[in-house]
Structures are given as C-alpha cells and as structure tokens.
C-alpha cells in the first residue's frame, strides 16, 4: 500500500491509526510486563482473561495472581470484572484495528463486558491492510472473528461522539516483542 511499504512504516501507521480511534497503545518487550499494567488498571477489581490468552501465554494468568479469573466464566461473573485481557490475532495498519478470534461465547464476554479491555498483539502479527483478512479469516473461517477499532462508541444523540456504550470505555493495545 501507498504509505506502508516497510515493516517499520506498518507498525507506525498501525499505532497512529489505533490512537486516532482512541485506543491507548503500549509497546512491551514481552508478556511479563502485562500483569503490572493489568493490575494497575484493575485497581481493586478483578481481571478476566480469555482462553486465547492463556493458550498463547500460559504463564500470564498465574503472574497476575489471585485477582485474575480464568477463562470459561459465566457472563454474569465476567460482567463484574474491571479489566478483560484478550489476544489480538492480527493488527491492521490500514484501520488501526485489532482482530479478535473468539470461538466461545465466554471469551467474547471478556472482550466486551469489562469497562477496560487490554488487547495483546504480537508485533509480527501486524499487517498493512485489510487484505490480510483473506488469509487469516476467510481461508478457513473461524466461528466468530471481530475487527475491533478503539472503544465502544455512539453518536446516536445529536451525532455527539460519546465513548463507552455497551462495550469497553478504555481499550489498551499492547504490542509485544
């Protein structure tokens, strides 16, 4: 694409557009730094973790400690969490979006019900354009995949942009590696 020829350009464009969409972008060397961020964001609340996260980073749940709830909770439990941690399968520079692939209903609840959501994304999974979906989503369609771009929002009252309706109010995108 026009302005995303190199890997660095792609990462820079992703960060810019994710920020434009009001995601809060972090860069961390690996998942060990994530637990500190999650605990800080959660305050005294609990932290829901989705199954793609525990599959990719098995140690994260334990490193967060007792405030973390493992995957597979009832929706009502997840709805009480202060923070949800989910895995991004792709980052898309064209739109600043993070693709979530979530087979289980309980995992989707983790990315939607808590007011704060942390999306973990491997640097190597950031692609220039939406065309990356052709391979990652459409070659073998998963049950349920979502491009998410910033926090939930509405403009239904007088077209005034308001952040945080049914989904998270704050979305943190953590680029790992």
């Amino acid at each position: 694409m026009v302005n995303t020829q190199t890997v660095d350009d792609t990462i820079a464009a992703f960060k810019q557009r994710a920020s434009d969409a009001r995601s809060i972008v972090h860069e961390m060397s690996d998942w060990h730094e994530v637990s500190a961020l999650a605990l800080e964001l959660a305050g005294s609340g609990t932290i829901a973790v989705s199954s793609p996260v525990t599959e990719a980073w098995p140690g994260l749940l334990e490193s967060i400690g007792e405030r973390a709830t493992p995957p597979g909770q009832d929706h009502a439990v997840t709805a009480t969490a202060s923070v949800g941690i989910v895995r991004g399968a792709l980052g898309i520079a064209e739109t600043g979006s993070v693709l979530l692939v979530e087979e289980h209903s309980s995992d989707r609840a983790v990315s939607m019900l808590p007011p704060v959501v942390v999306q973990l994304l491997d640097r190597a999974d950031i692609r220039p354009t939406l065309d990356a979906l052709l391979e990652r989503v459409f070659a073998a369609p998963p049950t349920f995949a979502s491009l998410t771009t910033g926090p939930s929002r509405t403009a239904d009252i007088e077209r005034a942009l308001t952040i945080g309706v049914h989904g998270p109010h704050d979305v943190h995108v953590v680029i790992l590696g």
Partner: peptide, 29 residues
C-alpha cells in the same frame, strides 16, 4: 473488504466502525 472500506466512510464518516464482526458458525453450545 471493499464494502468495509466504503460503508463506514459513507455512513458515519469513519474510516471503519468500532466493531466489524464475521460470524461463520454458532458458538459451541
């Protein structure tokens, strides 16, 4: 993908909406 590039720009003047979801099967159960 072409529709995604046009829809939000035409509808709400956004580059893309917050959630674009692809549903291909029922969730387990």
């Amino acid at each position: 993908i072409t529709q995604i590039r046009l829809l939000a720009r035409s509808a709400t003047a956004q580059p893309i909406t917050t959630y674009t979801t692809f549903i291909s099967a029922p969730a387990p159960g």
